[in-house]
């Protein structure tokens, strides 16, 4: 189990890192899709089937398409998809910031004992060293998710619907050309 997790993590992180450091935008977008696949694999590993498929459907199927469209629509020649190098100072400061954040988060995670998250009935180990007992995986079948969406989270579902509609309209308004002479496809 853990080996699979490490494998997924290494794959996802490696593709994401390479994607964000490449100079060719198309390669970046495609590699990032691979990274999203890695994240979907993590969801599958954790047993969240539905979310994994939704992730692939939304990110690989839709978001990556939108990004590729944006890359192709914002260039004048083929060479434009290869962008010039960014400033080194900026990159170094960004890496330092990122590393600092990672350091803080990592230390916090490693210092925390997660034993008090054990299910009821299993008492937390005094001064636990992060050895959590094996917990039975929670299950979320499609039926559970549907019932929750329609009862507990119904309001959130409605708000998401409104948000998506507004986003769709907003995207069309933003991307549509000012003049009425040309009909532009909205991404």
């Amino acid at each position: 189990m853990t080996a699979a997790l490490v494998l997924i993590a290494v794959f996802t992180l490696a593709t994401a890192a390479v994607a964000l450091s490449l100079r060719n935008l198309i390669h970046s977008a495609l590699l990032l899709s691979a990274s999203w696949f890695g994240i979907a694999a993590f969801y599958l590993w954790a047993g969240a089937e539905f979310v994994a498929f939704a992730q692939v459907l939304v990110y690989v199927g839709a978001v990556s398409m939108v990004i590729l469209f944006a890359v192709l629509l914002t260039r004048r020649s083929r060479a434009d998809t290869v962008i010039g190098p960014d400033s080194v100072a900026r990159a170094i400061s960004a890496v330092i910031t990122g590393m600092a954040v990672f350091g803080v988060l990592g230390v916090a995670i490693l210092k925390t004992s997660f034993t008090r998250f054990s299910p009821a009935g299993v008492p937390a180990l005094p001064g636990g060293t992060g050895v959590s007992p094996v917990i039975a995986a929670p299950t979320a079948t499609v039926r559970d998710i549907g019932i929750q969406l329609m009862s507990t989270h119904a309001a959130a579902l409605l708000i998401i619907g409104i948000l998506l509609t507004v986003a769709l309209l907003g995207a069309v308004v933003l991307a549509a050309q000012d003049g009425s002479e040309s009909k532009q496809e909205s991404p």
Binding site: E49, F50, F53, A54, L57, V60, G61, M65, V142
Partner: peptide
């Protein structure tokens, strides 16, 4: 699969990416 239909269309969604790759890589 509990979400079989969703799986089917998720796997199908990635084919679009391949068509784009082919078109772009051909130069």
């Amino acid at each position: 699969l509990n979400a079989g239909v969703l799986y089917f269309f998720a796997a199908g969604a990635a084919t679009e990416l391949a068509v784009f790759m082919a078109g772009w890589a051909s130069r």
